[in-house]
Structures are given as structure tokens and as C-alpha cells.
Design a protein around this nucleic acid. Structure first.
Lengths: 233, 233
DNA sequence: TGTGACAAATAAGTCTGACTTATTGGTTCC
DNA sequence: GGAACCAATAAGTCAGACTTATTTGTCACA
């Protein structure tokens, strides 16, 4: 997606980042810049740049005379797209997917409500187009085609909300949806109910019916939660 | 809050970060590492580390033969606490505060619902204590004391939800609440209705009444939205 | 006139080595 | 037993030389 491994320091991050977020180094572990530089066969300057980036993500803390210590998970910048990607690629992928799905369930209904107020004619058209694309790909194991339109649909909703914080969650939603299609049990065609709901959300937004847009989107996200067995009776 | 200006590269960031997020350099502007190093009177290595951090926040992009170009606002990592702080300190503080309040209004009700399910006895006790502290400071212009308990209350809710993504928004909520108290019109004592709502939320969570906890919290956040004249009739 | 290959200019990227400084942990002395 | 001191350590900083990718301009050729 985003340009990976740009430069030597990027390559180092591609290895160290996943290792740390996977919990390979328990909180409080101490790494030394020089040692890491040797291990990755790069100069200290390059390694220092990598450490600075990890530090800005609050994954590690660099202190004089001590070294580079790994921070506890609770302090990580878990909204950093890079961190999200690393964690999704690692062992606690399921846990991460659940967290993100809950986040979606909170954000998207509100985003849909705002979209019903703020969406431009162009965005309404895109929304309808996406919904139709989902319908067209909803039968006959066209999962990839369905996914593309599904992702686009939710991106438009988030963007049309007019809230920059919501808009930036587009990538996260894309990851979650892609994850569901590719790694979870999804051999069957998508749930027809969900498809219908998307069409109806597009309608509601077009008509400026904020209440309905929110309610329908909430139904979509509840479905997503149920798929992961979140939501106790 | 977090240790500021750690090292030379930190000092550079404290100047460059706010400048960029304030829109002082329009998107597409080109900076050169060497020139910046001269301007800040630091070595190229230090400046490179600073640029790497800005790059990891997606504020800038560094390309060979071109320089360090400023990215459009839509690509920034707006969830990065550092970026949030910079923007709150800058010119579009009001806009940022509105975005964050909308985010709160989406997250906190769901967090309260989850907290009603997952909160430990200890967390329930903390919650009650915070609510009582709010009551105790709700009259007689004790705004600072009120703020402390208000912040603590929402932190506990977010943490008790059991969702790590929600938990990490504690700092954001703290910023928003502090911003409201310190920079907005708030000479009067807090709205008694809001105080009561907090007490009731604590009750609902303690009793495990998820529906009620969510509904009451939604009322709190609606109040916050109304204060900023968000929410059209 | 347009288009292709080729060459020069440029700014980031990388490496090395020497030096500085803050912090820690031990040691000594009262 | 505690306070003051000192040495060890690893990050922090700097300067300079070199490499490499990318852009831009030029020139020849179709």
C-alpha cells in the first residue's frame, strides 16, 4: 500500500517494527543501538534514524547510559497506520481485528449520520455506484469484486462525513474488510441482508435522512460484530 | 505532558512540527535538509532524524533529488498525539477541537456500554469516586478541581471498556476537556445536568446496565456538541 | 517537429571515526 | 549507614567524504 522499505532505515523498521509489536521483546527489554546496527549490517546513523521513528510511535524509549528500552503495549500509538499494519501481520492479528471492528462499530454510524448532512452530489453518486457494484458482485463467488466496492463504499461514507478524523480511518476499515475476506471464513457469498443494508444507506444519505442512515449503518456494524462473536446476549 | 524537546532533534521538531501543522508551509512546499540544518544550527544527522520523524507522521515526504516535500493535510496521521498537540497549540485549534469532540461523541457512548460489561470492581469504585469529586467541585468556581475529576472519569470509562483503541483516546479527551475549561467561555459553574449525568453513568456501569450507560453517555456528549454549536436543528 | 537516448547537476542517502555528555552504579570516606 | 565522589557506559552530536537515484536539459536522429 504505502511505499515499504524506503531506504535502509525502512528495511530495518520492516524487521524491528513487527518484532516489537509482536511482543518478541517484552516491555522493559533493552536494545543497544550499536548492537542493532551490527545485527542489521547498517551504519549507526541509519540505525539511529530507525530508532527515532520507533520512538515517535512510542514503541521504544531511548535513554542515555541505558539504551533503547521497549515500552509497554499500553503506551504504543495504536492508531499509527504502520503500527496497525505490523500488528495485523503478526500473531495477535485476531485480537487486533476485534479491536478495530469495535472501533468501526462506534465510528461508522456517526459518520453515516454526518454524511447524510454533508455529502456532495458527487459523493452520493459514488455511494450509489459502490452499492450497485456490491449487488452485482454479491453472487457467484465474486468475493474480490465485492470487496473492492465494499471498501470504496465505506471510504466514501467516512470521507463524506466531513470529519477529518473519521476520514483517516478509511485505511483501517479497508484492512479490516480485506482481512475478513482473505483470512476469515468467507467461502460463501456475502450475507444478502448486508448487501441490502448498504443500498439502503446510500438511499438514506442521498435523501439526507440522518437518523435512518445512522440506524442502518449501525445494523451493518452489528453484523460485523456478530461475525466475530463479539456481543454477548 | 510527555517529555518535550528531548535532545536537539526534539527541539527542531518542537519548531518545525507546529509550523507545518499550522499550514505555514503549503502542501507541496519543498524544504532542503541542508538548509534546515543551517537554519536550526544543528548537524545534518540531527536534522535527518527530525525529518524521519516528520515522515513517519506523514507530514512530509523525503525524495531523492527533490527534497523534503510537505504532504497535504488529508494525509497526516491526525491521531498521532504529537500532531494533535501541535495542532491544538496552533491557529486551527477551534477546528481541531470540534473534530475531536465529534470523535468523542462517537466513541464514548460505545465505550460506556462496554465498560458496563467489563469494568472491574476497582474501576467501578474509581468511577464513583470521580463522580463524587465532580459533584463536590461543581459549585463555587472550583473549575480546576472539577476538571481533574472530569478527566479522570472519562479516562476510567475508556480504559474500563477493555478496548485498547478506546483506552488510548484518554489523552485526547483530556486535551478537549482542558481546552474547554481553559480557552472557551466557561466562567460559570458546570451545567448541573451534566454533573448528574456523570453520577448516573457511574451507577449504570456499576449495575452493569449497558443500555443505560450508553444512553446517558450519549446525552453527555450531545451536551458537549451543543456547547460548540455543532448539531443543526 | 517530435522523440529518443545520453549526460550533467542535484539533493538525499550512507558510512566512518572522533568527540561530548548525561546517567548509572560502584567505591570510598566520613 | 549514608553522602560524596569517580569511573564506566551508551546515547548524542558533529564534520567530512563518498554513493546513488532522479530530474532536467541537451543533442542527435527519425
Amino acid at each position: 500500500m504505502t511505499t515499504p522499505g524506503r531506504g535502509l532505515h525502512g528495511h530495518v523498521l520492516d524487521t524491528l517494527g513487527p518484532a516489537i509489536t509482536a511482543g518478541e521483546y517484552p516491555p522493559g527489554s533493552v536494545l543497544r543501538t550499536d548492537e542493532l546496527a551490527q545485527r542489521f549490517d547498517v551504519s549507526r546513523s541509519v540505525m539511529r534514524e530507525a530508532v527515532r521513528v520507533l520512538e515517535s510511535m512510542h514503541l521504544v524509549e531511548s535513554r542515555r547510559r541505558v539504551g533503547v528500552t521497549v515500552r509497554p503495549k499500553a503506551e504504543w500509538n495504536v492508531y499509527d497506520p504502520q503500527v496497525i499494519r505490523w500488528r495485523l501481520a503478526g500473531a495477535d492479528r485476531p485480537h487486533q481485528l476485534r479491536s478495530l471492528t469495535v472501533l468501526r462499530s462506534a465510528i461508522e454510524p456517526v459518520a453515516a449520520r454526518l454524511a447524510a448532512r454533508n455529502a456532495t452530489a458527487q459523493q452520493c453518486a459514488e455511494l450509489t455506484e459502490c452499492a450497485l457494484g456490491m449487488v452485482a458482485n454479491s453472487r457467484g463467488h465474486q468475493l474480490e469484486g465485492y470487496l473492492i466496492h465494499d471498501v470504496a463504499f465505506h471510504r466514501v461514507i467516512l470521507t463524506a462525513s466531513g470529519n477529518e478524523m473519521f476520514a483517516r480511518l478509511g485505511d483501517v476499515v479497508a484492512e479490516v474488510l480485506a482481512g475478513r475476506t482473505h483470512h476469515e471464513v468467507m467461502f460463501e457469498d456475502p450475507d444478502p441482508t448486508a448487501v441490502t443494508l448498504h443500498v439502503q444507506v446510500a438511499e438514506a444519505v442521498r435523501e439526507g435522512d440522518a437518523d435512518r442512515a445512522e440506524k442502518l449503518t449501525r445494523e451493518i456494524t452489528v453484523g460485523a460484530l456478530e461475525e466475530l462473536d463479539i456481543l454477548a446476549p
